[in-house]
Amino acid sequence: MRVIELKETVTASNDRDAEALRQELILRGILLVNLMSGPGSGKTTLLSRTIRDLPDLRIAVLEADLDATVDAETIEALGARSIQAHTDGMCHMDAGMTRAGLEALGTEQTDVVFLENVGNLICPAEYDTGAQRRVMILSVPEGDDKPLKYPLMFRESDALIISKTDALPYFDFDLEKCEARVKKLNPMIQVFPLSAKTGEGMAAWEAWLRHSLPKKPAK
């Protein structure tokens, strides 16, 4: 027997797969966004509004939430394509499952794919899916103390959407305090307070999304 020192994280193989997938998608000019949040934070409502607001972008949705038939129907009613990914009851999506999901979805005629990750604030943050952007949604009713309870999710995200701001008058949610907490965990993070219901704040998020698109390869 020979002793081999590895000093690798258990997910090292996933990290390599994820990096390969990321580079492939960039070369093909496709933006993959990993959308993470707790259940009921308004992922589907946000996506519906975003799809409606950006008719020039060909958007597809990879649903990974456990039972997302309702979500899929809502998305397809808007003319965007969607597919249910199989996580086999797992609490997160990894790069292999994402690749399989994208192949089943077909990405030939696509500009943006949203991966609607499993509704959970812990496990999805630990696995790289190969997305170029990681976006987290925190809704006003969930409370401004979430960054203190789930720091990893906030540290790993490129953008935070604070959704349902139309409900601010009814909750003790301190927007400034929340933003300060989040920026302490992750100074680079972009914060977008918005309401998909009223449309307030949607423009800033959509501009950021557009800006995140990889350059189309020269034909």
């Binding site: 020979r2 002793v3 081999i4 020192e5 590895l6 000093k7 258990v10 203190l148």
Partner: peptide
């Protein structure tokens, strides 16, 4: 103070393996 950060204790690392060639 609540201004605290985890230094270590969050990891899951494969330190080494013993194996036959």
């Amino acid at each position: 103070s609540g201004e605290t950060w985890l230094l270590k204790g969050n990891e899951c690392i494969i330190k080494q393996i013993e194996a036959e060639e």
